[in-house]
Amino acid sequence: MIMQIAFDYIFLIDKIVLIACVLALSLLVAMYSTWGERKVAGWIQDRYGPNRAGPLGLLQPLADGGKLFFKEEIIPANSNRFLFILGPSLAMLVACMTSAVIPWGDILEIGGRKISLQIAEVNIGVLYIFGVVSLGVYGIMLGGWASNNKFSLLAAVRGASQIISYELAMGLSLIALVMLSGSLNLKDIVEQQRHGLWNICYQPLGFLIFLVCAFAECTRTPFDLTEADSELNGGYHLEYSSMKLGFYLFAEYINMFISSALMASLYFGGYSFPGMDSLGLSTNVVTMLGFGALFIKIIAFLFLFMWVRWTIPRFRYDQLMKLGWNMLIPLALFNMLITGGLILWQQGH
């Protein structure tokens, strides 16, 4: 009994350390995504991007963060104070919660104990992500409504309908993947790809739909109708200042990071890389290499997010809805049908 309790405490400490690491990593990556975004924007527009604060402008995120902390906090006079503060907090909380089910690596062996680099190994990982992502809209809605500003309200309503619409196509595109893998646990999905081909080979159409939906769910350009500077003056965070604005901006980058990790895990093999099992190295080294591989994939996806942002102009709202309902959902259904048919055909043989 005592042994049992002692073991549980160690397990708890493991998990707490892991959660702290993942949170710190998400925040760090989000910080440097802002830097990366501005660098990529600069390069694409034949400029240098930030290059004053520190070498290559690497201290720019710290300077920006410091600035946001010291700016004046403004709460509009006629706003709902509680909801106004709840909005950005919720956006940040939800963004940080998603990382719990993503397998960041295989197994580390420390002192004879095996530590899985996944915070929560639940058998409904994909559904959990859906649940959390569907809550992400509350941050936008509450913030936009509580600001008591018509532009914010419009952005909130746009955001809500956009996210709900694209969640459908996203779910349908994932169902095809789940039919293939037969598991909702992200770790199982990654392990299957480790011993076979990556899922992108089986599900190119599904991946494309998922990618477009991921852009829409993160409200990134070309689907950033919730911000739409040219028509809504910045949208749902129009009335926000100081670190509350920072939270909203940060949440967007964390969402990008997590959806990159998710796409890498679901379609591009996660922490596995070709020749992973034939290296002949110790488990820990292979695990760390695997984490490196996952990180490289994530950075590639983050670059894609930025690259698209500085290439494609924003959709009009009716075009957005048309794409979601008239193109992506039928395509996803079609993809599901084809996948199901092929699986049946293969089982018949």
């Binding site: 694409i44 034949d46 290439t311 494609i312």
Partner: peptide
């Protein structure tokens, strides 16, 4: 629409390696 997006993305990608016009 996808093909046109890829064409656009190729153009912006080429700009990543262009000489920068900024004067520091």
């Amino acid at each position: 629409y996808l093909w046109n997006i890829i064409k656009g993305m190729r153009i912006t990608f080429a700009h990543l390696f262009r000489k920068k016009v900024t004067v520091k």
